[in-house]
């Protein structure tokens, strides 16, 4: 089975729920476990929240989400055209945050890494950020 979808939405906090519910609906075709659905929803929520708070600094612009299913493998990308990340390795360190005043826990990337099998972050200052994540689903059947 092969399938893909692309979604564009405004970078407002109401769309965090919209994005994760949409990706959860999309991946039901791969017959995931409940825990896998929860994992993907958390990872997507983290990536979209990062785009809203950090990428666009809470200004309203467009976030793009792509999801691809190839057999039992899900790939998700969350893309913003915001400020970008000068030092991706630093940004991915646990507990690191540039916005402590907003009570960011610094655990967003940690959760994305914990709940997905693979994650890659592509970013350029002034150009934006693309978070690519991959997870194999339906592990109970293999």
């Amino acid at each position: 089975m092969k399938n893909q979808m692309k979604l564009e939405f405004d970078s407002i906090s109401e769309n965090e729920a919209f994005a994760r519910v949409t990706v959860a609906a999309f991946l039901t075709q791969a017959n995931p476990t409940l825990e896998e659905v929860a994992d993907v929803k958390t990872a997507v929520s983290e990536a979209v929240t990062n785009a809203i708070i950090h990428g666009y600094g809470e200004e309203v612009h467009t976030i793009t989400m792509l999801a691809r299913l190839k057999g039992q493998t899900l790939e998700v990308e969350v893309i913003d055209r915001g400020v970008g990340i000068p030092d991706v390795a630093k940004a991915m360190e646990p507990m690191y945050t540039t916005r402590p005043e907003l009570e960011r826990s610094g655990m967003g990337f940690l959760f994305m890494e914990a709940f997905m099998d693979e994650i890659q972050v592509f970013s350029k200052p002034g150009k934006g950020t693309r978070v690519w994540m991959k997870k194999r689903l339906g592990k109970r059947e293999k």
Binding site: R20, A38, K41, T42, S45, E46, T49, L102, E103, R104, S105, G106, M107, G108, L110, F111
Partner: peptide
């Protein structure tokens, strides 16, 4: 039923 790192921060 759902909590992410923003909930943890709060």
């Amino acid at each position: 039923v759902f909590c992410d790192s923003s909930g943890i921060g709060m």
